[in-house]
Simulated scan of single mutants.
Amino acid sequence: MDDAVLKIATETAWAVYRARHTDVDAFDSRRCLLERHLLRRKEECASEAQELASFGIAYLCRLPGDEC
């Protein structure tokens, strides 16, 4: 998977998450957690940005609010 797919997936997941959680700042620490999570997952996933983004959205939704 190339870096462009990872970047698209990260941007998509982050945008969807922030649209659902309007109280989350654009520079929230969850963004960094998301990037690290997707970087680890990219070897396991197909090269589809949408699939990787869906893994990222699911990951963000599982994070407890007080962890960030």
Rank of each mutant, 00 (worst) to 15 (best):
M1I: 09
M1K: 09
D2N: 15
D2E: 10
D3K: 10
D3H: 11
D3F: 09
D3I: 09
A4E: 14
A4I: 08
A4Y: 13
A4M: 12
V5C: 14
V5M: 14
V5Y: 04
L6M: 09
K7G: 09
K7W: 12
I8N: 05
I8W: 01
I8F: 04
I8D: 05
A9C: 07
A9K: 02
A9N: 04
T10C: 14
E11F: 06
T12N: 15
A13N: 10
A13F: 09
A13Q: 11
W14Y: 11
W14F: 07
W14V: 01
A15S: 15
A15H: 13
V16N: 01
V16K: 02
V16H: 03
Y17A: 08
Y17I: 06
R18Y: 07
R18A: 05
R18C: 14
R18S: 07
A19Y: 05
R20S: 15
R20G: 15
H21N: 15
T22S: 15
T22W: 10
T22H: 15
T22C: 14
T22M: 12
D23S: 10
D23C: 04
V24A: 04
V24S: 02
D25N: 12
D25Y: 10
A26D: 15
A26M: 12
A26Q: 11
A26H: 14
F27N: 15
F27R: 14
F27V: 14
D28M: 05
D28Y: 04
D28G: 07
D28C: 08
R31I: 12
R31H: 12
R31F: 13
R31V: 09
C32H: 04
L33F: 03
L33P: 02
L33A: 07
L34G: 01
L34D: 02
E35M: 06
E35V: 04
H37W: 09
H37C: 13
H37L: 08
L38A: 10
L38P: 06
L38G: 07
L38D: 08
L39G: 11
L39A: 08
L39E: 14
R40H: 02
R41A: 08
R41W: 03
E43Y: 07
E44V: 00
E44R: 00
C45Y: 06
C45E: 11
C45M: 11
A46H: 03
S47Q: 12
S47K: 07
E48A: 13
E48R: 12
E48W: 11
A49Y: 00
A49T: 00
E51M: 06
E51G: 06
L52K: 08
L52G: 10
L52A: 07
A53G: 11
A53S: 12
A53Q: 11
A53P: 09
A53C: 14
S54M: 04
S54F: 02
F55M: 08
F55D: 09
G56S: 06
G56C: 05
I57A: 10
I57L: 14
I57G: 07
I57E: 12
A58E: 08
A58C: 05
Y59P: 00
L60Y: 01
L60H: 01
C61P: 00
C61E: 07
C61V: 03
R62Q: 00
R62I: 03
R62G: 04
R62P: 01
L63R: 00
L63K: 00
L63A: 00
L63P: 01
P64Y: 09
P64E: 10
P64V: 06
D66I: 02
D66L: 01
D66W: 03
E67V: 10
E67L: 11
C68G: 08
C68D: 07
C68W: 05
C68E: 08
